[in-house]
Nucleic acid binder design. Structure first.
Lengths: 200, 200
DNA sequence: ACCGGACAAATAAGCGTTTTTGTTCGAATG
DNA sequence: CATTCGAACAAAAACGCTTATTTGTCCGGT
């Protein structure tokens, strides 16, 4: 009895499985250092079988990144749809995002140095940034509707908050100096943001 | 007629000159790629003469970084002591800092990859961060005195603003994707910050 | 204050050999 | 028809080794 994929066929299930395992290996060793043999062994298939599912090593890597972004987007979607206080929602959003970032240090390194398809990466980043602004805006709008926030320019506020979040990401992606207390940092930046948008 | 250094003697003047030229070369080629010969030629001295002024290549590099930090601190000090509106002062502070960062991409790379004296770098960063918080706090205090800001926890506000600024630095230091409109970004983040601290 | 010369250590360059690795393809399996 | 893989292969990378060059550092002399 094998797992069945989204569409119920074995192919998709296998594809998902490869993706899952490749993700682990890529995130551990980066793009250059992991070999297709590594992945093939891990999924208990022949190396050439991988080509039944993906066109190339880089193609596989891109698929992994793609899925990573999808998963993150999905998790954030859940956070956003929870019925919580707007401020808590903002905090949860930031924490969820940062938690994901913690696991992606090697991906970042790979993206910066190993990958040739720069266009693809730019595309993903851009898409994600737009998603982020959209999601933040939704939180803000809800906050206003619940009479907790007071915002005149949603676009501006969303972009500002996005930038502030970037400031939190930095110590996680670029060689971190000493362990960062995530919760504490988030609380501080959140306070500043809230100063700005809370009704009083 | 040669320039004379701070203390009027030739030694200090030469040291300063070496520092100035070494800075240019280091910032262009990074730490590993620049050789002492490069620098010696540029300052029109023999390679061994450099050892009259510095103990080692890394020592020279550290001195360059140190000076860089000093210059930045000095420039920021000037900005802070100007008699301007607090919000403008905050904007000038951020812009001045980011402008300096633009020129330091190679330094950053060197610091991340080439340098063995990690302790030294950590020290510099820490010192700078503390300075930054102190300077931001001074701006905030002045803003409150001028009755433009309304702040309950200066420490918290200063740390928050520092984090937000980091979000602006990121696209400058970590491989920038497309050119960033600095002034615009600063205005946006400034707006968010000001939302939070302005009296209304 | 400056430099030539010396030196070890590190780095690069050369080069034939071997191994690894990404990719293709046709055959096998069921 | 869907899936798997062995075998083959060129390109790349790793290796081992020798030789040449560069580079950071030190010292003695001026």
């Amino acid at each position: 009895m094998h797992d069945l994929g989204k569409n119920g066929n074995k192919r998709d299930a296998n594809r998902e499985n490869i993706l899952k395992i490749a993700r682990e290996i890529f995130s551990k060793y980066g793009f250059k250092k992991t070999t297709l043999d590594d992945i093939a062994n891990a999924v208990r298939k022949g190396k050439s079988s991988l080509y039944y599912y993906f066109n190339s090593k880089e193609d596989l890597f891109q698929a992994v990144i793609m899925k990573e972004v999808e998963i993150l987007a999905h998790e954030l979607e859940i956070v956003i749809n929870r019925n919580t206080d707007p401020v808590d929602k903002l905090r949860d959003y930031i924490l969820t995002k940062l938690a994901t970032f913690r696991n992606l240090a090697n991906f970042y390194h790979a993206i910066e140095n190993d990958i040739t398809a720069v266009g693809f990466i730019d595309e993903v980043k851009l898409k994600y940034e737009q998603d982020e602004i959209r999601m933040i805006k939704r939180i803000l709008i809800e906050g206003v509707r619940k009479n907790e926030f007071e915002i005149y320019d949603f676009n501006l506020a969303a972009i500002g908050i996005t930038t502030a979040i970037k400031g939190l990401e930095m110590p996680l992606t670029a060689g971190h100096y000493g362990d960062v207390n995530l919760e504490r940092s988030v609380d501080i930046i959140l306070k500043i943001i809230c100063y700005g948008i809370m009704k009083r």
